[in-house]
Design a protein around this nucleic acid. Structure first.
Lengths: 108, 108
DNA sequence: GGGAGTGTATGGTTTTCATCGAACACTCTG
DNA sequence: CAGAGTGTTCGATGAAAACCATACACTCCC
């Protein structure tokens, strides 16, 4: 009798400390993912589900982009009921790559 | 009678100020180009010709990589006799994207 | 339990990008 | 001026990545 609220496999996460620079740069060098990160930065943690983002791609592609963002240590995800909610890993990522997130978040 | 030392077309340059973040990130998200930038950062300006870099690609690919770096405002080139010598645009690029170059140049 | 909502996995298509070989252009030197 | 050295351009190839449609898995609510 474990206290589990979900029978789904928890998403695999990579800590920013384990991410090579090149991977971080590649993750952020995509227009859709830049949009995701920017939108995510505008709301409190755990308030945005994956499907709530305004990007011009289908569900499958969107899911793929979140996998990439997780693998780059940029996003943390947690299952909440039927939805998967997100959090931008601001501090951890900034500790590993100081200033990088700021460059992406600022609008030129 | 103009004072010209070269009849070759000067390479097209893009100033960092005119470079979108995404372009800068994409330019740096490549192992060969990271090597070029790192090696270039280790020597004084205008001392390295294109062919003098130790990267595992042919001439054509190398030329392409320098085109990308120029287009991202990372590298400036000048013809010097038969060679084309390079300069890393440290200050200009850092003014436009503070901290980004530092992230790439540090070895983790 | 059925059905709607949400997200992932799979298979296949398209696009993009790095790469190469070969041909060409320019510079210098002998 | 012929030839070596340097770098670019062109066309083609192969690999990687983005994308879609479909099918599947899980959660919640009626």
């Amino acid at each position: 009798m474990v206290e589990r609220t979900s029978h789904r496999a928890a998403p695999e996460h990579t800590h920013p400390d384990d991410v090579p620079v090149q991977t971080a740069l590649a993750a952020l060098a995509d227009p859709v993912r830049i949009t995701l990160v920017r939108e995510l930065s505008g709301c409190p943690a755990w308030t945005r589900s994956c499907g709530s983002f305004d990007v011009p791609v289908g569900k499958a592609a969107l899911s793929h982009h979140f996998t990439v963002l997780r693998g780059a240590g940029l996003v943390e995800q947690r299952d909440e009921g039927p939805k998967r909610v997100n959090r931008l890993r601001r501090e951890e990522f900034d500790a590993r790559f100081p200033g990088l997130l700021a460059l992406v978040l600022r609008e030129d």
